[in-house]
């Protein structure tokens, strides 16, 4: 189902113990069209996680409104708004394996769907469907989640979110702490799911390779505001601006700039991936 996300002047603050962080978000305006894959980047503490939390009603705006589909989150909300929003927005936190608790993998995956009113039999079907989507075998469903390896736990946790069949998927560094191979596998299963379900996906990441490989759009946050929201290729075209935010370039683009500088030959397009770079190098006759 198509789902649009719109933030209108959203401001929010946290209160944890005695420390009140004033305005972790301030006047955020943002419109994310349905079906896009957006990367959210910015330094630690710039408000990325807070932005994600607002999407899920875990952080309530002090000012402004967040529109998620036809639901509106603002200062005062009915409880059913949160339930409705959380049903539609699947949230994969950093190190999601830390949320596993049930006796079996099956029960853990069914936890979300059942909370949102899916009958157990149906939830079981969802679980067995989704476990294959994340690249695990059926027989893992009967095991205890605590007996699995780190990479398997991560997949089970993600499966638990996917089983809720969200229209919007929000991920906070889903590959953190995994080896390069494990990370690439997780990212490609997310991309496949995004395409298959025509989901709206938001990915918080520090890794510019992820941005270059998976995102359609880039959202840059700084001091609790969105300072830039652009199509990914436009975003990487201006390397001086990236330097200003002390952001790295993805390998292909970085290498492209070096080649262009050394040879004086301009490549025909902005290369974000290795494949694009190879094509471009061959096209202009450098390789």
């Amino acid at each position: 189902m198509a789902m649009q996300v719109k933030f209108h002047n959203v401001a929010a603050d946290y209160k944890l113990g005695p420390i009140r962080q004033s305005f972790v978000l301030q006047s955020v305006n943002l419109a994310i069209s349905s079906g896009t894959f957006s990367a959210v980047i910015g330094p630690t503490g710039s408000g990325k996680s807070s932005l994600l939390k607002v999407l899920n009603g875990l952080l309530v705006p002090k000012q402004g409104q967040a529109h998620i589909g036809d639901q509106v989150i603002e200062k005062e909300n009915d409880k059913h708004v949160y339930k409705e929003v959380r049903k539609r927005v699947g949230m994969v936190f950093q190190f999601p394996e830390s949320q596993l608790f049930a006796e079996t993998v099956l029960q853990d995956i069914c936890f979300g769907p059942i909370n949102f009113g899916v009958p157990f039999e149906e939830a079981k079907k969802l679980a067995s469907d989704v476990i294959e989507q994340v690249g695990l075998e059926q027989d893992i469903l009967t095991k205890s989640p605590f007996s699995l390896s780190g990479g398997q736990k991560r997949r089970v946790a993600i499966a638990g979110i996917l089983a809720m069949n969200p229209d919007i998927l929000v991920l906070d560094e889903p590959g953190a702490g995994l080896d390069p191979k494990g990370k690439a596998e997780i990212m490609s299963l997310i991309l496949n799911w995004h395409r298959k379900k025509e989901m709206t996906t938001l990915l918080v990441t520090h890794d510019m390779e992820d941005v270059a490989h998976y995102a359609d759009e880039v959202i840059v946050m700084e001091n609790g505001s969105v300072v830039m929201h652009e199509e990914v290729r436009d975003f990487f075209s201006d390397d001086q601006r990236l330097e200003k935010w002390s952001l790295e370039l993805p390998n292909a683009r970085r290498f492209q700039l070096k080649v262009e500088q050394d040879t004086g030959v301009k490549l025909p397009n902005i290369c974000l991936t290795k494949n694009e770079l190879v094509e471009a190098l061959i096209k202009v006759g450098l390789a």
Partner: peptide, 25 residues
């Protein structure tokens, strides 16, 4: 490796970034 797979005449030994840039130039 990718260029080699595309049938380009790159050297058959490991290349650092500087070597690769040199070869392209």
């Amino acid at each position: 490796r990718d260029l080699m797979a595309k049938g380009r005449s790159v050297p058959e030994t490991y290349m650092t970034e500087r070597e690769m840039l040199g070869w392209l130039c």
